[in-house]
Amino acid sequence: MPHRSSDMRVFYHVHMISDSTGETLMAVMRASAAQFDRAEPIEHLFALVRSPRQLDKALEHVADFPGIVMYTMVNSDLRREIEDRCAELHVPAIAVLDPIQATLSGYLGAPVTGKAGAQRALDAEYYRRIEAMNYSMAHDDGQGDNLAGAEVILLGISRTSKTPTSVYLGHRGIRTANIPIVPGAPLPEELFFLKKPLIVGLTASPERIVQIRRNRLLNLKEDRETGYVDEDRVREELIHAKRLFAKYGWPTIDVTRRSIEETAAKVINLLSEHRNTV
């Protein structure tokens, strides 16, 4: 059962059991839990559970720390074992993908195959995302070569969220490079001849840029006045960047009031449109 702390926060155990990497379960659980104020899940993840012995170990943990069980499992015997054991323990068990698969089955007029091969597809997707993350990290802040291997290239002046957006997109399986626009420094010549990657310009209000830059200098214990945080200079940097984006027809995203997730979602939408035109 959930328990309350002295400051009235509610803590509860959530057990995620998956025959894959568990990333789908984790994403669904966290998105759902975020809708409940002052309620914090204690996460227990059991990934790559594919044998009765592995499942027994996970269910023993559920017995020790009763809570909600969420699972994705192809094997019907293991699914049944989860349901039976959770019923004995009087804890709810949720087959996260079942409602989606049932709806798709009804819409398509086809049964759910339950093929083990689907697991291999998930594994391939996992490794594709790892490769994208590696690419994004190697091509952060103008580093690396082979820009032609990118799916997305982000451009922007300092402190326009290029790096965290690149990392987030990499985690989503999108190979992303980011390049800073620095006064007086030329951009890579290769950039202007690329056809396949989506090139996106990131911008923000001068006030927001100055605020973030000042905070960065404070964290670095740098208190000297510098043009880096001069609002007029920042405004000039932004005007130069916007003119560059307009000249080459690169789509632009204002990140002033956007979270990293919102910026990335916009980039993904632009990428979908871009792929239909190249």
Rank of each mutant, 00 (worst) to 15 (best):
M1R: 07
S5A: 14
S6G: 11
Y12Q: 01
H13E: 12
I17L: 05
G22C: 03
E23G: 02
T24P: 03
T24F: 05
T24H: 00
A27V: 12
M29N: 08
A31E: 15
A31C: 11
F36E: 06
F36Q: 07
F46V: 04
A47H: 03
P52H: 10
R53A: 13
H61F: 10
A63C: 09
D64G: 11
F65S: 01
P66S: 04
V74D: 00
D77I: 14
R80Y: 06
R85A: 09
E88C: 05
P92W: 04
I94H: 00
P99A: 12
I100G: 06
P111A: 14
G114M: 06
Y126V: 04
A132N: 08
A132Y: 08
M133H: 09
Y135W: 07
G142R: 00
G142E: 02
D145F: 11
D145H: 14
D145C: 13
D145W: 11
A150F: 05
A150D: 06
A150S: 11
E151Y: 03
L154Y: 06
G156V: 01
I157C: 05
R159G: 03
Y168C: 02
G170I: 01
R172E: 10
R172M: 11
R172H: 06
T176E: 09
I179V: 15
V182G: 00
P186K: 01
E189V: 15
E189C: 07
E189I: 14
F193D: 04
I199F: 00
G201D: 08
L202R: 05
A204M: 06
P206N: 13
R208L: 01
Q211K: 13
I212V: 09
N215F: 08
L217P: 01
E222G: 02
R224I: 07
T226M: 05
G227M: 04
E231A: 03
R233D: 06
V234Y: 04
E237R: 02
I239Y: 06
H240I: 10
A241T: 08
F245G: 02
K247R: 12
W250R: 04
V255I: 03
R257W: 11
E273Q: 13
R275F: 02
